[in-house]
């Protein structure tokens, strides 16, 4: 992350621990994830152990520790999606992409995140790619979407 940007965020908060979550959120917003460098510098500024910041951040699903892939996939694991089979969808995504939630594929193409309810229960199970919602995903649908994304990336395109 750009040092000036991080500095700018840190300067906007008093250096005390109650602002930790807000700082983490802003840094992730700016950087896309929480880098080791950023965590170390936040720790130094708030006079907390690096391990403490990492511990707090790993408590929340929201925070990522790897940069997002070109395609950031969010799979809803809310109640309705679970009932409609999001567990099988997650298995399929993990298998197809070779990564677990919170990780980014080695080629930098895909990152995976599980989220609580996305608020589209009528379309369950729901998955979003870079914010675009895909409804009623099952194994076949996921494979089709991933193939399309891969060929789009190979063609140098940004859109589906």
């Amino acid at each position: 992350m750009n040092n000036d940007k991080l500095e700018e965020i840190l300067n906007r908060y008093p250096p005390s621990r109650e602002h930790l979550i807000a700082i983490l959120q802003e840094v992730q917003e700016a950087e896309g994830f929480l880098s080791r460098e950023a965590i170390v510098r936040i720790a130094a500024r708030l006079k907390l152990a690096t391990g403490k910041i990492y511990g707090v951040a790993t408590f929340y699903n929201q925070f990522r520790f790897q940069s997002s892939g070109k395609y950031h996939i969010q799979l809803c694991r809310g109640t309705a999606c679970h009932v409609k089979g999001s567990s099988a969808a997650l298995d399929c995504l993990e298998r197809e992409l070779g990564i677990h939630p919170g990780e980014t594929s080695a080629d930098g193409l895909f990152s995976l995140e599980v989220t609580p309810c996305l608020g589209a229960c009528g379309l369950a199970p729901v998955m979003s790619v870079n914010g675009e919602i895909h409804s009623c995903v099952d194994e076949i649908k996921i494979k089709t979407i991933l193939t399309a994304l891969r060929s789009s990336a190979a063609a140098g395109g940004d859109e589906l």
């Binding site: 907390l48 152990a49 391990g51 403490k52 990492y54 511990g55 790993t58 408590f59």
Partner: peptide, 10 residues
Amino acid sequence: EVGAIEFVGR
């Protein structure tokens, strides 16, 4: 006050 270890994850 070393803080070498911490709870990680949930």
